[in-house]
Design a binder for these strands. Structure first.
Length: 565
RNA sequence: GUGCCUUUAGCUCAGCUGGAUAGAGCGACAGCCUCCUAAGCUGUAGGUCGGAAGUUCGAAUCUUCUAAGGCACGCCA
């Protein structure tokens, strides 16, 4: 049975109010006061005041006198509000025993049972370094996958590698003109990137280079042996480097089917569009008109017959629908591509696919440098690998300074350093642009990943020392407001997970984890947990429950939780 | 020019299905380790919620207008 204290309060009100308001309206009206003095839930009476034509405080007083429920300790009227205080003993007992039984499954649900969600994420471009921008897609997608799994969904994480497109024509052109095989073998990404940059700077004074690049891409699409050989070499070298980063981040994929994978699947799409009379010619190119969706036309084939991004994404959408039967298909891709996804859905709707609207673009703001977008072509970018290694070495220095006797220092430094970077990315709402700041990213104090990890590690340490015997929290001292704050947060966990699922927003969980960690740290500073009295085991039960939920929150964000640090 | 996003404390951001004195962290200043990991805790200072009008008993939150910044607008992805 699902516990939900808010809806139980709503039920109680519903009975008191008879038919005046329906249950769902009441649930919507109930709020959580920001101030603890106002209790755990509050019901504003202003709407009733209108229909009853009575003063709100009068109504509040009347309702508060009628409230009677074993879960409610006290109800008082303040202004036009009915403020309700939950029965701390009962609720504490219920919350703790639920967590004690459920352990890491606490907060799980089955709403996604037998449903598949595909997640298009990470998707770095071959022959380019893994930049900070790709980090966002990777960690947001990874967290969403874990959140969906927690809710019973089956997830398919797809790394839609940018391994096809005109850029490879450009790269081949550049390599053939200025490339050096030995150099590329030695430092593939660096060398390929500098060739790519050189191409663009030379092309500024020599536009015919662009045509050459396009021509090489056409050759690639037509199966030219030399082009293909170079392409697969570039791809292989790049993947090796990406895998190093994925290993560090502990992110894995169910599929690496990138753009090239769809090469032989695009004719079907183009034919389908043709059959349905959706394709029209415009300046020698083939487009689907989307005027009735008030969108610019979607380009399907270039004037030279080569395909485009949209063509491949259409093929990919069809393939994924057939192959995975998804209920939702998420695309964790930057905000700047929102038009593309609108067009994609528009075309699918025109093709009469009723599942067109189950494609969900999960956009995110971009990583800015000096207030501007970072550009690969101009070589203005920050390498994730460097950021991660700096973060890890900072964590390492911290360990030497604060806990030099720690065992497995290297493992923990990695967990903390990487955790800091991931958390920094996930703690804010994804649509916000982020101005790149190494200083912010490598901060380990305050609202950071290490803060939560540290809180958990301290709690774990207490459990080790206290010899917790597994008993529940029935003996706990209810007079401490610090304790109640923890319980109050613990009981919200599953609601938080639901919200972050609905909004595709991992930051909800990150913020929750901060709140819970803070509540625990306050408790820790006020109450001596290991004090040997009759409540010791009960306090340990509370501490244990905190570690369960903190660890689970971190896990959902893709961050590890060391037992010691 | 059109569309989308953003604008809340010095900085980074919560709060946004309308509700009670607008909250954190960082930075600044002042405290707390004879006691469970000080990567912690406590306190002080700091706000015309970009601006204007409207809807409402009530607006940071909804609507319209407007300003600033960012991004995107067919042969890149």
């Amino acid at each position: 049975m699902k516990m939900n204290y808010l809806s139980q309060f709503a039920n109680t009100l519903h009975q008191i109010l008879h038919q005046e308001l329906d249950l769902s309206t009441i649930e919507l009206l109930i709020e959580k006061p920001k101030n603890a003095d106002f209790g755990d839930y509050a019901f504003p009476c202003f709407q009733l005041a209108k229909s009853r034509r009575q003063a709100p405080p009068l109504i509040a007083k009347k309702i508060s006198e009628e409230i009677s429920s074993p879960l409610i300790e006290k109800a008082e009227a303040v202004g036009g509000y009915v403020n309700v205080f939950l029965t701390k003993k009962t609720v504490t007992q219920k919350v703790l025993s639920t967590i004690l039984t459920g352990k890491q499954h606490y907060g799980s649900s089955t709403i996604g049972q037998n449903k598949v969600v595909t997640i298009d994420m990470s998707s770095p471009n071959i022959a380019k370094p893994f930049s900070m921008g790709h980090l966002r897609s990777t960690v947001i997608g990874n967290a969403l996958a874990k959140i969906f799994q927690k809710c019973g969904y089956e997830t398919v994480k797809i790394n839609h590698l940018g391994d096809w497109g005109t850029q490879f024509g450009k790269l081949i052109t550049a390599y053939k003109k200025w490339g050096d095989e030995k150099k590329v073998k030695k430092e593939p990404i660096k060398e390929l990137l500098s060739l790519y940059i050189q191409f663009h700077s030379e092309a500024e004074g020599n536009p015919s280079l662009e045509d050459e690049g396009r021509a090489w891409f056409k050759k690639l699409e037509d199966g030219d042996a030399e082009a293909l050989a170079l392409w697969s070499w570039f791809r292989e070298e790049s993947l090796k480097e990406f895998n190093k980063i994925y290993q560090l981040l502990q992110v894995d994929f169910n599929s690496f089917a990138g753009e090239a994978f769809y090469n032989d699947k695009m004719d079907v799409v183009v034919n389908l569009l043709e059959e349905q009379g959706l394709l029209m010619e415009s300046n020698q190119a083939q487009v689907v008109d989307l005027q009735d969706e008030s969108l610019p036309p979607c380009l399907i084939k270039k004037s030279d017959g080569a395909t485009l991004y949209a063509t491949r994404d259409l093929a990919a959408a069809l393939y994924r629908k057939n192959n995975y039967q998804f209920e939702q298909a998420l695309y964790v891709v930057g905000n700047e591509q929102s038009l593309h996804f609108k067009q994609l859905k528009g075309v699918l709707r025109k093709m009469n696919f009723d599942w067109a609207d189950s494609l969900v673009h999960v956009p995110f703001g971009m990583m800015l440098k000096d207030g501007k977008k970072m550009s690969t072509r101009k070589g203005k970018l920050i390498l994730l690998e460097e950021v991660l290694s700096e973060s890890i070495s900072l964590a390492s220095r911290n360990i030497e300074e604060k806990n030099p006797s720690l065992t497995q220092k290297e493992v923990v430094a990695k967990q903390v350093g990487v955790g800091a970077v991931i958390f920094h990315d996930l703690k804010n709402f994804r649509m916000n642009d982020i101005e790149f700041s190494l200083e912010d990213m490598l901060r380990f104090e305050g609202e950071t990943g290490p803060y939560i990890q540290y809180t958990n590690a301290r709690a774990c340490s207490i459990l080790r020392k206290g010899n917790w015997n597994g008993s529940d929290g029935t003996q706990i001292n209810f007079e401490s407001p610090a304790h109640w704050e923890i319980i109050s947060l613990l009981k919200e966990f599953s609601d938080i997970i639901q919200t972050s699922l609905k909004k595709y927003d991992p930051s909800q969980i990150a913020k929750y984890a901060i709140d819970l960690a803070r509540a625990f740290n306050q408790y820790y500073s006020v109450v001596r947990i290991l004090e040997d009295n009759h409540e010791l085991q009960a306090r340990l039960a509370l501490v244990y429950c905190v570690t369960v939920v903190l660890q689970e929150s971190l896990r959902l964000l893709g961050i590890e939780a060391p037992q010691e640090m």
